[in-house]
């Protein structure tokens, strides 16, 4: 597994685990994630997660 392994398709995470992932990301970012505005591609892999949730925050 690497940063481009698909996390939903490979069964690493189920759609129910996504909630936990989002809450964890929020704790790292220190603010809420607007789930309704997330494009499905954002949850593809570690690269896309970083790109979507952290790049703009300069982390």
């Amino acid at each position: 597994m690497d940063d481009r392994t698909p996390i939903l398709d490979s069964g690493i995470l189920s759609s129910l685990d996504v909630v936990e992932l989002v809450i964890f990301i929020e704790s790292l970012r220190g603010e809420e994630v607007d789930v309704d505005s997330i494009e499905p591609e954002a949850l593809l892999n570690v690269d896309s997660l970083f790109e979507t949730f952290f790049k703009a925050f300069g982390r």
Binding site: L8, S15, V18, V19, V22, I23, E32, V33, D34, V35, D36, I38, L43
Partner: peptide, 8 residues
């Protein structure tokens, strides 16, 4: 409060 569930 917003919900965080995502429908796949």
């Amino acid at each position: 409060y917003a919900q965080k569930k995502l429908v796949v």
